[in-house]
Structures are given as C-alpha cells and as structure tokens.
Amino acid sequence: MNIVVIIKQTPDTETVIRLAPDNKRIVTSDIKWIINPYDEFAIEAALRLKEKHGGTVTVISFGAQRVVEALRTALAMGADDAVLIDDPQMRDADFLRVTRALVAAAKEKNPDIIFIGSRTVDYDQGQRGAILAEMLGWPHFALAISMESDGKDITIERPIEGGKVTLKAPLPVLVTFGGSHAVWNPRYASLPGIMKAKKKPLAVKKLTDLGLDPADFSPDKARIRITSLELPPQRKAGKIIDGGLDTSGKARELVKLLREEARVI
C-alpha cells in the first residue's frame, strides 16, 4: 500500500505572534517550528496502517529549507521517504495553487491513500484535505477519530455536533485527522529512528520538477489575498472576588455579578 502523508511545518503552539511592519505577515525570525500537531496525528495513523498492512509511507511538505527538519522528524518517527517542494515562486501563492503543487507531488507516488491533518495551527483554514481530494477526484473523509482499513476499503468515525458518523468507502480515499492527542497519541522519534532518518531519501523539488508552470503561481494569480493582519484586543484581567467574604459569600457575589453586571445567567 502506498501511503502519502502531507504535513506542514508551523510555529510552535506557544509562539508569541508579532506582526511584520507591512501588517501582512508575522515576524518569523525567532520562531520555534514544529510539525503541525494534526499532521502528527496523520503520520501516526499512517505508521499504524503500515504496521498492519505493510507498504510505504511518504511524507510530503512545502516551504523553505527549514522544513527539512520537520520531514526528518517524520522519517525518524518511521516514515520511509520524504519530498519537499521548495520553490520561491510558491511563497505568495494562494491555497488552491499550493495545493495543486502538493497534488502533483503526491501523484508521483501512486498513492492508495492520502492522510493529512484536519487543520493547521497557523492559518487554520482547515481545508487543504478537501481541496486535495477534489483535485484528485477522490472521496475524502474529514476529521477522523478512528480508522480501519483492510487495504481495500476504509472505515472511519467522524464527530459531528452532538454525535458521531461512521463512514466507509473503497480506496483510494483521502482522510483528514481530527480528535486530540488522547485519540492519536503520536509516537516520539526514537534515538535509533533519528539515526536511521539521516539516511532515508529526501527529495527536494521545484515546481518545474513537478511539471508545473511557475508563472501560474505568481501572487497576482491569487484568487484571495490577505489585506492586513491585526492583533486581537487584549483581554484585561478582571476582578478577583474576595472582599473578605467566606466561600458561600463569594459564590453569592459571583452569582450576583453574573446576573446583574454581565447578564449572562
């Protein structure tokens, strides 16, 4: 089975976000980068599938050379090979275009199944998986919290508001992973894993290597563009309810404030 996992390198979840002077980007100079947590769930699911049915796991990502580190981490977790699409022409391309490049790279691996996180913790658009599937003409299952496959069919569970749906389809299928750490519990890279990862194949490709025309990726071709960024209004610390009151006195005061000041109960 050829399993492809698409991952993205994102700022660490602790990162303090600062705006660049043009107000259209964030300052990235002092950021610690990680694999998007949801993509880690996808890697874990892929490795579990491989352990059961054999096959290869290819991880594909895009971005600058720093992304090599994310790919090496995925290889150290147990993936077999990696592809990085690093082309300066892609930097300001919009969602659809970046995804087109990922589709081209994925196709070269003749995938039976493609995995990706349901969201990224950076731009948080949660749509790459569905777009990939549409471009491939594949079915997709989003937000999987469980996955079973016998190599022919795949069954997943997906949470919906106030419930759960179980879906099944024959391969090929694209799956996006939701849930949380408690569900997927992605493995850490082991020391031997890290040593082995250094020797695993990692190809770096340009758009032209994928048979794509870089001119299509120029910023003026974008269908959608960011006009400005802003920081959210700072939440101010409110009041600590004390006033020398005892426990039930504080409870009474809180109820009163919620009722009369905030008017939320």
């Binding site: 990162t15 976000i17 964030i26 948080d124 960011i226 959210p232």
Partner: peptide, 8 residues
C-alpha cells in the same frame, strides 16, 4: 494562530 492574530 489559534486566535493570537486576526487576518482580513
């Protein structure tokens, strides 16, 4: 960025 930034 998990609500740490808004974009228009």
């Amino acid at each position: 960025f998990s609500g740490k930034c808004f974009a228009w």
